[in-house]
């Protein structure tokens, strides 16, 4: 067991290193700004004295490494600084919205993951059947659709024509759970549709790859039943690829959230980042980027560790 613990610890260490690197990039990105943050904020109206005052306020008169460490230390304590646009604390702006975004992503994931795994596996097992072929064409088309296209079609059908679900997902912290669910239904469905196609295709490919292994052929030559082959020979080796597919798509989901939130005017992190980009509210964009990137890195790390933990060669070292 020693080696597997080692490998996992290594990955964890690497993950933390990547997180640091990501924070450094996001920090340095702003340093690349022509002039500096204060000139960017004040634009044409900048005078030498106002810029200097601003620099003092934001601590820009200190050296970059000092500011980085300071910034990172604050983030670790949950302090992301203050918004340039409205002077509010960013952590306050974010906290509710972060919850909303995770809620939306979770609803989409709960529908998408089991459904696409099941359909992907079925398509792989009944390869080249009409079912598989139509799934192929369908998913190939739907990965080609921009998120907003899917979103507006759903709005047109379910909101405008049928009036089953609202086209605005304007939840607030005191919206009761079921009403909330009702309101996020269309955005969640949009995300589900977009993510499912990818997930199904990847699942299908992973399973087909697995079923082509010589040991599966050997199992057939041993006269084992199809169910036994799938349950005992394919499944134990399928975890790693499946976990990877799920993690990759959850990560993809997080990005998809941005567009969907804008379409449905859903008060989440995605909408916040888009608004802030338009206002060039750099500290908020930085904060949101850090959160999105961290989630992304952690998801991939989880997948990595899970697939290591199910690898028989590492579970049973020589």
């Amino acid at each position: 067991m020693g080696s597997i613990v080692n490998v996992i610890l290594q990955r964890l260490g690497l993950g933390i290193l990547v997180l640091f690197a990501v924070s450094l990039i996001i920090f340095l990105g702003v340093e690349l700004l022509p002039g500096d943050l204060c000139q960017a904020i004040q634009g044409q109206a900048a005078t030498e004295s106002t810029v200097a005052a601003c620099r003092r306020d934001l601590g820009l008169d200190q050296a970059a490494p000092v500011r980085y460490i300071h910034w990172l230390g604050n983030i670790a304590q949950g302090d992301f600084g203050t918004s340039l646009a409205n002077g509010r604390k960013i952590s306050e702006l974010i906290s509710v919205r972060l919850g909303n975004t995770f809620f939306l992503a979770a609803v989409a994931a709960v529908i998408a993951v089991p459904l696409s795994l099941a359909l992907g596996i079925l398509a792989a097992l009944y390869r080249n059947s009409w079912f598989d072929r139509s799934i192929n064409i369908l998913t190939l088309s739907s990965i080609s659709f921009p998120e907003f296209f899917v979103a507006y079609i759903l709005i047109l059908i379910f909101s405008v024509k049928l009036a089953w679900f609202p086209s605005l997902a304007d939840v607030s912290p005191d919206t009761p759970f079921f009403e909330r669910l009702h309101k996020v239904f269309l955005p969640a469905l949009t995300l589900t549709l977009v993510v499912m196609a990818h997930m199904m295709r990847m699942t299908r490919a992973a399973i087909i790859n697995l079923m082509a292994s010589p040991y599966i052929e050997m199992a057939k030559f041993k006269g084992l039943s199809r169910a036994h082959i799938i349950m005992h020979h394919a499944l134990p080796n399928a975890w790693a690829p499946i976990v990877n597919v799920v993690a990759l798509n959850l990560a993809y989901l997080i990005v998809g959230v941005v567009i969907v939130e804008v379409v449905f005017v859903y008060p989440g992190l995605g909408q916040l980042i888009v608004d802030s980009v338009q206002k060039r509210d750099i500290p908020v964009v930085q904060a949101c980027s850090i959160i999105f990137a961290a989630t992304y890195v952690l998801l991939n790390l989880t997948a990595d560790i899970l697939s290591i933990a199910t690898n028989p060669r590492l579970l049973h070292p020589r």
Binding site: G29, A251, A293, Y296
Partner: peptide, 21 residues
């Protein structure tokens, strides 16, 4: 490249567009 890919590309481009206009 690993590190650059650790940031979702849409988010990364939003950040860069903020910076560079």
């Amino acid at each position: 490249v690993d590190v650059l890919m650790a940031i979702p590309s849409l988010i990364f481009s939003l950040l860069l567009l903020t910076i560079f206009g």
